[in-house]
Amino acid sequence: MFLSVLRSETAAFPDRMARALAGLRAYQVAPRERRPDPKPAIHRAGRVSLRDYGGTGRPVVFVPSLINPPDILDHAAETSLLRWIAGQGFHASLVDWGTPGTDDRDLDLAAHVERLLVPLLQVFDEPPVVVGYCLGGTLALGAAAIMPLAGVATIAAPWHFSGYGEGRPALAATWATVQPAAAMLGLLPMEVLQAGFWQLDPARTIAKYEAFADLAPDSDAARAFVRLEDWANAGAPLPYAAAASLFEDCIANDLPGKGGWVIAGTPIDPLALACPTVEFVSLSDRIVPAATAIGLADRRDLGAGHVGMIVGRSARTRLWEPLANWIAALD
């Protein structure tokens, strides 16, 4: 798939193709830093665990996407939103979705909320604040509709999937191609999802490898690129039913945006939740375009990309601090 994207973007520009291939090769052979061991799991629900990041005060639970590893929220010592929040007077925890097996094939997105996420959120002595990133924000809204929470903050969370606009046919074609094999396996490999993301912005996919070819291998920028790209290219597969929910119910039919997503018999309406809510929306996001935003009354627009808003150089001032201030104001 990468080579197909490369050909389509650079067929008329052999110099660019050569630079992108050089960047790809440099990425492949770059030394890798050893990742720290995961934080201890203090509770479990099936394959899913709740990892404790310490701190004191109000419990704040971060819910990552199902699609990439959760450690983007604890990416490096200097770019860890979780560790920073734990130092701001809150008790921070992270949901780790784990690795599904074929026994999980029938767990759709609603089941992930009802059977895996909600039991973890119920272990606290008081209702926690939940912070959901990307698809994790969508799932967090589902949890808030069927259990008491102190508040929900979403970061780059899609809700009105019709906002993918021209990207929907390409994503639908990807699903049509892989659906029979996914049904047979009971799982959808992460590589398929990554290929779908590349199709949303193929020019950027190639340009970033062209730029990487020019970086000094031992530079901070090169190490940061490798760390981030390893995260973006990693991740557990999706259970078949969750993949079908994502591609058919959400992207194709926009059930959440139309008010048709139901969990435990409850239609999910983010505008009618009993707890305070806020959404942080990236205006330059190609993975979760601003047009897919929820439409909450408290909406904060950011001029940073899907990942940059979490780990970028301006992430602390643009996102971390406003998020912490919002949580603190709940008192």
Rank of each mutant, 00 (worst) to 15 (best):
M1L: 07
V5K: 06
V5P: 05
L6C: 09
R7E: 11
E9W: 00
E9A: 11
T10Y: 06
A12M: 11
A12E: 09
R16G: 04
A22N: 07
G23C: 06
L24Y: 11
L24A: 12
L24D: 05
A26I: 05
Y27I: 12
P31H: 02
R34G: 10
P38L: 12
P38S: 07
P40G: 04
A41C: 06
Y53V: 11
P64F: 10
P64S: 09
P64M: 08
S65D: 10
L66M: 10
I67N: 04
I72C: 03
L73N: 04
L73G: 06
A76E: 14
A77Q: 10
L82W: 10
L82Y: 10
W84Y: 14
I85F: 07
A86Y: 05
A86N: 06
A86K: 05
G87I: 10
Q88M: 12
Q88Y: 09
G89L: 12
H91T: 04
L94D: 11
L94I: 13
D96L: 01
D96C: 01
W97L: 08
P100V: 13
T102I: 15
D103M: 06
D104E: 15
D106L: 09
D106A: 11
L107H: 01
L109P: 03
H112I: 03
E114T: 15
L117D: 03
L120R: 03
F124R: 07
D125N: 12
V131G: 05
G132S: 06
G132K: 04
L135W: 05
L135D: 02
G137M: 10
G137D: 12
T138W: 03
T138H: 01
L139T: 10
G142A: 07
A144R: 05
M147E: 15
A150N: 07
E166F: 08
G167T: 09
R168Q: 14
V178M: 05
L185A: 14
L187E: 15
P189F: 09
M190S: 14
E191M: 09
Q194G: 13
Q194S: 13
D201M: 12
A203V: 11
T205R: 07
Y209P: 03
L215Y: 13
S219E: 13
D220P: 02
R223W: 04
A224G: 10
F225D: 07
V226N: 03
R227A: 11
R227C: 08
W231V: 07
N233Q: 15
A234H: 11
A234C: 12
G235W: 02
A236F: 11
P237L: 02
P237A: 08
P239G: 00
S245I: 01
L246I: 00
L246R: 02
F247L: 06
F247N: 02
D249G: 13
L255D: 05
G259Y: 03
L271H: 15
L273Q: 01
P276G: 09
P276R: 08
V281E: 05
S282G: 13
S282R: 13
R286Q: 14
P289D: 07
A290V: 13
A290M: 12
A297P: 02
D298S: 01
L302I: 15
A304H: 00
H306Y: 09
V307D: 02
I310D: 03
I310L: 13
V311H: 11
G312P: 06
S314E: 12
S314H: 12
R318P: 00
E321F: 00
P322I: 10
P322Q: 07
L323W: 08
A324I: 14
A324S: 14
N325T: 15
W326A: 04
A328S: 15
A329V: 06
L330T: 05
D331M: 00
